[in-house]
Nucleic acid binder design. Structure first.
Lengths: 174, 174, 174, 174
DNA sequence: TTTT
DNA sequence: TTTT
């Protein structure tokens, strides 16, 4: 549709080590279960209560799958940004069923590790290029050298790098 | 859980006139179906393709239900901000089923009308207090008089209104 | 820094026809002024009050600049998603000054037109490829064919298009 | 304005212990400096580069100020959600100056601690009621008992608590 | 300087 | 079931 937005932002913890499958043509797909929760004090009883929500996240982005494969373990705290998608499928009795998932695919998908350890499941982390929690948009981080603007004053220049290479870890994609 | 965020942001069109039910104790609950869609040019065929996603939105916030009741019609374009919630229920054969909805309830829920007409279903709009599309956080809009900060210069004062009234359409909630 | 997010989401109206400059090497940079505003009823006087906030948006993304050049006019309602950046410059007396802008550059930058007409400044719109308000992430819209996941049921396939082409209007970027 | 949104989402680290001032009528205002940063590999040199952005955050929300006063120290990692505001002031020579800040005030403002320790400046944490990182929307967390919707099946009831109490730590604000 |  |  014209002028529509479909965006989900979660910060939560991974419930189990991620599963990574591959399509027939070799591209990876990662599945994550992420828990968010909120707590509040019950007005009547005065007790603190908590409710946990579980989310299914499906990652089609190849660079994000690589990050997940290497660094994301059970217990890791993640920031993720994706889109809602409801998928129709048939159960064993042939009835239509629907599952809603958060899809990370292409643009505007982000996955960022928020803890420096991948705590919870044990292991994780270690790669020398991945020094702690880090942000992984597709193709590496958003470029940042920036540039100027300004009504009259200032000049905007955005110097570093060529604008049209697209390898992951590249500097300025466009 | 400590430190979690569960947020959905949608801009889309309402698929049908909203349904408003009431709980036993009289509070309203509105249900909306919202469509978002995206289009892209297929790389092989060169054809433009489009995919629509349908979202179920459940509104527990009383002020937002009032806005919906009065102004939201089939076809209206909305900005909504809520949280994901998956609800378990039993189908007629007693099997567990799950439905994922976007819940607008309390804080950090927003509904904003993005077209000035409520076009689509016909009528709508017209109230003198609601001049066109408008933003409705719970209890009216976020206060805005603001105030200053500043490292050294400036003084921050936030003058208008008492901070502790809570009627809808109030000025400064806290 | 590890694990950081810097995101701005605005829906507002463009205050003047956009300015588009070009860098020495020919890349476009668009400047927009966008107004957001909120209204509330003053608690004391009972009057409705309104406060408008003006935002400076700088667009480095080439595809987004093209969209702006062709379709965005004074008065247009836009959804934009970018990042905050504070730029240092010197005024005519040599004093340091700082300007904070919303930068749209590379990933996670989005600009979507929310009105079907570019109303306000007059003209606009018309291109056959741009049928009304539309979303433009860099390189065309986010792909959407999606795919499955599911713990046991369903199979995930994401069929259309080659995953590694990167022209604007392409189908599936990664 | 009708139909506008002004939202900033940051995840970053606090650069110094927060300053808390008070207005003449006793309400607190907290100032935070938050750093976000992104890194990328320079396309020419192949070096990893990093750019840090500093943000000024001004908190008018009283419950959020309390949280900041008690738990937020230099080095803490925070999620914050607020609105952009540009404030005009005069420097010592009488020239107009502008500062853009992220304001947390009333609805749709959130501050969540993302590390369980307030690492960096030392101390922090300890209160028995604040067991680790936690989310603080105004007046306690968003209620979560939720309820149902559903086209035909299921019944939605949202039972707990009265909808109109407004103390912090309350359960269901509206 | 926008919009309602 | 919406919208362009």
């Amino acid at each position: 549709m014209a002028g529509s937005v479909n965006k989900v932002i979660l910060i939560g913890n991974v419930g189990a080590d991620p599963e990574i499958r591959r399509t027939q043509d070799g591209r990876p797909i990662a599945n994550l279960r992420i828990a968010t929760s909120e707590s509040w004090k019950d007005r009547n009883s005065g007790e603190r209560r908590e409710k946990t929500e579980w989310h299914t996240v499906v990652v089609f982005s190849e660079p994000l799958c690589k990050v997940i494969e290497q660094y994301v373990k059970k217990g890791a705290k993640l920031y993720i940004e994706g889109a809602l998608q409801t998928r129709k499928w048939q159960d064993q009795t042939g009835n239509d069923r629907y599952s809603t998932e958060i899809v990370l695919q292409g643009f505007n998908s982000t996955l960022t590790m928020l803890d420096g350890r991948g705590e919870g499941g044990g292991a994780s982390r270690g790669g020398s290029d991945f020094g702690g929690a880090q942000s992984y948009d597709d193709y590496g981080s958003r470029p940042s050298s920036g540039g100027g603007s300004g009504s009259g004053a200032s000049g905007g220049n955005r110097s570093s790098g060529s604008p049209l290479s697209r390898d992951m870890d590249d500097d300025i994609p466009f």
